[in-house]
Design a protein around this nucleic acid. Structure first.
Length: 896
DNA sequence: GCGCTGGAATTATTT
DNA sequence: ACAAATAATTCCAGC
């Protein structure tokens, strides 16, 4: 392929896999859907195609008497309907962006699996959950179960190898879900569904709610595999995790992704009765990733999502398909079966949820061993005799009440704002288990990060949660390869305690009114888990290699009148955790200018680390498919170069006649494979007002309209929305987003969003479709951009799930609602390139194979090559996409 | 002795 | 299949 840029590899693989998956789209789709949320089916075109879908889910939910899903009364509009009318930030979360406004990009190779993610599987809850209330006095999040960090299993999937557990485990195990998770796992877990935006929080009284949440919890809980002991055989993972660490585990074969040929040793370290199912259609992004191209990731994410919807079967069978993918499929199947299983019979179980009242929650926290998920996802005895369903525990019920860790939540809502007053340093060498602690994350200026909750006037202390999240372009979610590590000792002034939520260790810190609800985070270190261990985990789709950037994610759950809880979240700037990267890779933290005229010539100062006199700054414009349409090395002032600052001259853009802003990227390169992440930069028209209402230029990325053209626009748009087009009035966003949402919801429906949480949103804010939801869908990172989640304290009681949320599901679908319409991108993947296809992109300075020679100064617009995608979407779909894009464009133009 | 680092040797993966 | 380059882990040593 072509891209010469950092993400070259990525591009290649991405396309490759995409195509591949595409082949089996039809079959695959059906398959996926089957697991997918039932909600999706309703009202969605896709549903028809996938009759199977609804049933499983439904069964799952309804079948289990134990599961208390409180019917939500009011979330008619469903998920999408719930919107937070809150701050603009909500819609255009900044969390995902870097300090300079650029989205955090990241890991070089990310595999996105289409299967729906139930990953989160292993849930700590399953394992002995002992509750210790270490934070007395503070109102802890109801759902959080505190554990003394029992087995490492918490983050490692002990059962990962066990075939039997695969299904449920898969769903439960995987860490935060990725896009795919949404698609694939509707009913399942909130955690896995990024799309499910937090906008809505489930009502305790709603049976359905309970369920989803439960699932979320479930996610947390879900895994069949609980304690290692229950499983007959220790999985490799487990062994490595728990056992002596004398030797490194061999890297999981099935997890590795191989570029084009997809050759992967099918070796399975651990014999498993069944081929490992993991397989889901996955798009693997192999980019030099660590550079991460936001654009690419965004699109990849989209693609992945699409793939999830439309692919798979082929993959499963095909040769050259990563084993992992194939496994997924199998697992899913199994999982489905399992899911239908009635609640576990484990005696040890705590009282039925029904018996618990909200008031009782606090107590529950201390309850040990709960397996909320187990109930739902209990593994069939026959297949996996060793897996025992665990009794429902109070804790499990509670967890459902809080948004899953991979939910995108806003940093502020109403009078409240959770803010990181002092950001952590951009580098922090994480420690391995085999090493001693490397200390707490520090602030760049010395000291430690500081987080404060503004607008909270009560006297009740609150619990601030902290976990390690991803820093790639996809939705923020718990990082599978890193865990927060509690630091204690004399040097630590902030007390904290650990809890584990679905494979993710969470540090809970008290926010005291007397301290102004401000906390100095000097108790948080970062633990690196071995890639091989995590990659073997069922359901895990990401790869650890070069996936070394994280963000600190803070959450606070504020009790609201009526028993609900408002959840806010904010993520820090990206933190590079590898030793090597910290020493060798250039890192751009700030740029003096985010945009300039196409003529260029202006000096821009980059601040960061590891800049060398030989450092090069490359500007890149990418096509939707990841091709580099244009690359230009900017002039740098070697004299002025310092390790922490670099002065570059903004090069002229290839097209001097643009009529609307064009977003490009640039990165600092210290040599082969030593490149910074992509930074964003926007070229502004030289002399044309930026206000436009209709897209006019074919070749203009921003302006391009239509699925095909989206190539460029989708990529750049996200950023525009966030950076340039941010509407002062949230309301505006809502409207736009809402529209998109509706449209999309009918077309595609990533199920996940169906989360129960959406139910019963009393606050008006949640009644609308939240843009945030939409935004997050496509991979834009919105660490803090999600909709605030308000939820009532769950009332554990079994309720007939008579009121499914089909409708709500439909609305809730994780469709992209934002103007950015990432979804559009995804759609495009399938659309016929009818519009704006140009044969030869041009580029210049850096000789790009695919690029034609052209003067960068050429006034004429340069055609952009857009990859042609199979035309398989129905017209409705296309129309929808077009509409969305149109809206987005006009919206964008207006704002700009 | 422990925790925290900075470095660097080793080993595993990719190219 | 092999070698070189890279990235991931494990070890060491000093404070």
């Amino acid at each position: 392929m072509t891209g010469l840029g950092p993400d070259q590899e990525f591009d290649f693989e991405f396309l490759f896999e995409f195509d591949q998956s595409d082949e089996g789209a039809t079959a695959a789709t059906g398959e996926h859907y089957s697991y997918a949320s039932s909600g999706i089916s309703s009202g969605l075109p896709l549903s028809t195609a996938h009759p199977v879908l609804p049933a499983p889910c439904h069964d799952l939910q309804t079948s289990n008497p134990v599961i208390s899903v409180l019917p939500s009364t009011g979330h008619p509009s469903g998920y999408g309907g719930a919107v937070d009318s809150g701050p603009a930030g909500y819609f255009l979360p900044s969390g995902g962006t870097r300090p300079n406004g650029a989205p955090a990009l990241e890991s070089p190779r990310i595999e996105i699996t289409s299967y729906l993610g139930l990953h989160h599987g292993s849930n700590p809850f399953f394992h002995d959950v002992e509750v210790e209330d270490t934070v007395p006095g503070a109102r802890r999040a109801p759902s959080t179960a505190t554990l003394p960090l029992p087995g490492l299993e918490a983050y490692r999937d002990p059962t990962c190898l066990s075939p039997a557990s695969s299904l449920s485990s898969r769903s439960c195990n995987s860490e935060a879900s990725s896009y795919e998770s949404n698609y694939s796992y509707p009913y399942a877990s909130p955690q896995t569904s990024p799309w499910q935006s937090p906008c809505v929080s489930p009502k305790t009284t709603d049976p359905e709610d309970g369920f989803p949440r439960g699932l979320g919890a479930c996610n947390l809980l879900a895994s069949p595999r609980h304690s290692p002991s229950t499983s007959p055989r220790a999985s490799v993972t487990e062994e490595s995790w728990l056992g002596p660490r004398g030797s490194r585990p061999s890297s999981p074969c099935n997890k590795r992704k191989y570029g084009l040929n997809g050759r992967q040793p099918s070796c399975s370290p651990h014999p498993s009765p069944t081929p490992s199912p993991q397989g889901s259609p996955r798009v693997s992004v192999t980019d030099d990733t660590w550079l991460g191209n936001s654009t690419q990731y965004t699109s990849s994410a989209i693609v992945a999502a699409i793939n999830a919807l439309s692919t798979d079967s082929s993959l499963d069978l095909g040769d050259g398909v990563p084993v992992k993918a194939r496994k997924t499929t199998l697992e899913h199947t199994a999982a489905m079966a399992l899911k239908v299983e009635p609640a576990g019979e484990d005696p040890g179980a705590t009282p039925p949820a029904a018996t618990f009242s909200p008031e009782e929650f606090p107590t529950f926290q201390h309850i040990r061993k709960g397996a909320f998920c187990d109930q739902y996802l209990s593994v069939p005895q026959a297949p996996c005799p060793w897996v025992k369903p665990k009794p429902l525990s109070p804790a499990s019920y509670m967890s459902p009440s809080l948004p899953a860790l991979d939910w995108q939540l806003p940093p502020h809502s109403g009078p409240y704002e959770l803010r990181i007053e002092v950001q952590p340093k951009s580098h922090h060498r994480a420690h391995y288990e085999t090493e001693g602690s490397r200390g707490a994350v520090k602030a760049s200026a010395g000291g430690h990060p500081i987080v404060q909750l503004h607008g909270y006037l009560e006297n009740e202390p609150l619990t601030l949660q902290l976990f390690i999240g991803t820093a790639d372009d996809r939705l923020l979610r718990p990082h599978a390869f890193y865990q927060v590590h509690r630091i204690t000792g004399k040097t630590v002034s902030t007390t904290s305690h650990e809890a584990i939520l679905s494979n993710t260790k969470v540090l809970e810190i008290l926010l005291l009114p007397e301290n102004n609800m401000r906390a100095i985070i000097d108790c948080a270190g970062i633990l690196k888990l071995r890639n091989s261990d995590i990659e073997l985990r069922k359901g895990e789709t990401d790869i650890g290699r070069k996936n070394t950037r994280v963000r600190l994610v803070f959450r606070v759950h504020i009790p609201q009148p009526g028993g609900r809880t408002l959840s806010l979240q904010v993520a820090s700037n990206p933190i590079e955790c590898s030793q090597r990267s910290a020493q060798e890779l250039p890192l751009v933290e700030k740029q003096s200018t985010d945009s300039y005229l196409v003529v260029g010539g202006k000096k821009m100062v980059l601040s960061g680390h590891n800049f060398l006199q030989d450092s090069k700054v490359i500007f890149v414009e990418k096509a939707p498919d990841g091709h580099h349409v244009w690359e230009m090395e900017a002039k740098t002032d070697r004299e002025m170069c310092k390790p922490n600052s670099l002065v570059v001259e903004i090069p002229p853009f290839r097209n001097q006649r643009i009529t609307s802003p064009v977003q490009v990227n640039f990165y600092v390169c210290n040599g082969k494979r030593k490149r910074s992440q992509y930074q964003h930069f926007t070229y502004l028209p030289a002399n044309v007002p930026i206000i436009k209402t209709e897209p006019t230029d074919d070749y203009e990325p921003v302006q391009t309209c239509g699925p095909v053209t989206q190539g460029l626009s989708p990529l750049s748009k996200p950023y525009y929305s966030q950076q340039l087009l941010l509407p002062p009035d949230p309301g505006a966003c809502l409207v736009a987003g809402f529209t998109s949402c509706q449209q999309r919801s009918t077309v595609m429906s990533p199920p996940p969003s169906t989360s129960p949480k959406l139910h019963d949103l009393s606050s008006a804010t949640y009644t609308k479709c939240s843009p945030s939801t939409g935004h997050s869908h496509l991979g834009l990172q919105q660490p803090a951009g999600g909709a605030p989640t308000t939820q009532e304290v769950p009332r554990p009681r079994a309720v007939p799930s008579s009121a499914p949320h089909p409708s709500s599901h439909a609305t809730l679908q994780p469709q992209p609602c934002s103007p950015t319409s990432p979804s559009a991108v995804g759609h495009q993947q399938h659309q016929p390139p009818k519009v704006h296809r140009h044969e030869s992109p041009t580029t210049q300075p850096l000789s790009l194979p695919e690029l034609h020679e052209d003067s960068s100064h050429n006034l004429a617009p340069i055609p952009v090559t857009v990859k042609r995608e199979p035309e398989e979407l129905d017209q409705l779909y296309l129309d929808d996409v077009n509409e969305i894009i149109r809206n987005d464009l006009s919206s964008t133009n207006i704002h700009s």
